[in-house]
């Protein structure tokens, strides 16, 4: 089968699912608008801890406030994607397993991982990501040397890589629901760990730096794109980041496929 013939049904399924998700969100207008406004404020509030920590300090671990805000911006972009697209789906999977409604997903002639991962969308939470891009833009404009096109392209690519790693981590966690059914604690643990990604990886102790580089590669998600915008990213770091992302995606896919074999559905 050609690539186009493989990709077309996926795009069609995603398009139809997101169309339904948008309509569902818009069915409750007041909730949609209120959630969007609150989300925008929440995105803005993420800069406050950075400004507070850097008050009276020129640099911390080699990062200025504006440079640190690049990391915060990248974090907010990814967090918006998590809240809009990743978390609603993967948390929903737990209910689908508990109540057996995963049956209908598995009956579709589309890769179930894809449907499970992306069919739900909370579109108003994408405002958070928009806020993240605004933070990135403002912080980048305050750098001594604003990034060029190459740096911006590299940063956006690395943000995509970070999003892939983040998705893979979530998939690994929720795949365990096929064995344990309830995985609330694991997902809370992941959410809490993710919060560390709002800071440059260099501000942590060495042991955490290793942890956040290899085990839970939070540094790859947010610090690496910020380094690209600063123009100080080593090409080898970018390539190794890409390698880590490929490994995480492959491992999470393998775990998902194995987990699916344990699906026992719910009784009628």
């Amino acid at each position: 089968m050609s690539d186009a013939r493989r990709v077309r049904p996926i795009l069609r399924a995603l398009g139809a699912s997101w169309r339904a998700a948008w309509m569902t969100a818009l069915a409750y207008r007041a909730n949609f608008l209120a959630d969007a406004v609150v989300t925008l404020f929440a995105a803005g509030a993420t800069v406050l801890p950075v400004l507070f920590v850097f008050h009276g300090q020129e640099t911390i671990a080699g990062w200025t406030a504006s440079e640190a805000l690049l990391v915060t911006g990248a974090f907010v972009v990814l967090q918006g994607l998590v809240e809009a697209a990743v978390e609603p789906n993967l948390r929903g999977l737990v209910d689908d397993i508990r109540f057996g409604t995963l049956d209908y997903v598995l009956l579709r002639p589309v890769d179930p991982q894809l449907l499970v991962s992306f069919r739900r969308l909370v579109p108003q939470r994408l405002v958070y990501s928009v806020g993240g891009f605004v933070i990135l833009g403002v912080a980048a404009s305050r750098l001594p040397e604003p990034p060029g096109l190459w740096a911006i392209s590299a940063a956006l690519t690395l943000l995509g890589v970070g999003a892939a790693v983040m998705y893979a981590l979530w998939l690994l966690v929720v795949s365990t629901a096929f064995w344990f059914v309830r995985v609330d604690n694991l997902s809370y643990l992941l959410t809490s760990a993710m919060d560390a990604a709002r800071w440059p990886i260099d501000v942590f102790r060495p042991v955490f730096r290793v942890l956040f580089s290899v085990v839970v590669p939070l540094g790859l998600m947010t610090t690496t794109p910020a380094l690209a915008l600063r123009g100080v990213l080593e090409p080898t770091s970018a390539l190794s980041g890409l390698g880590v992302a490929v490994v995480f995606c492959a491992v999470s896919r393998a775990v998902w496929v194995r987990a699916l074999r344990h699906y026992s559905s719910a009784s009628s």
């Binding site: 069609r12 399924a13 579709r108 449907l115």
Partner: peptide, 9 residues
């Protein structure tokens, strides 16, 4: 129905 139309092509 429309969603299923798309999913089942």
């Amino acid at each position: 129905f429309e969603l299923n139309r798309a999913l089942y092509d």
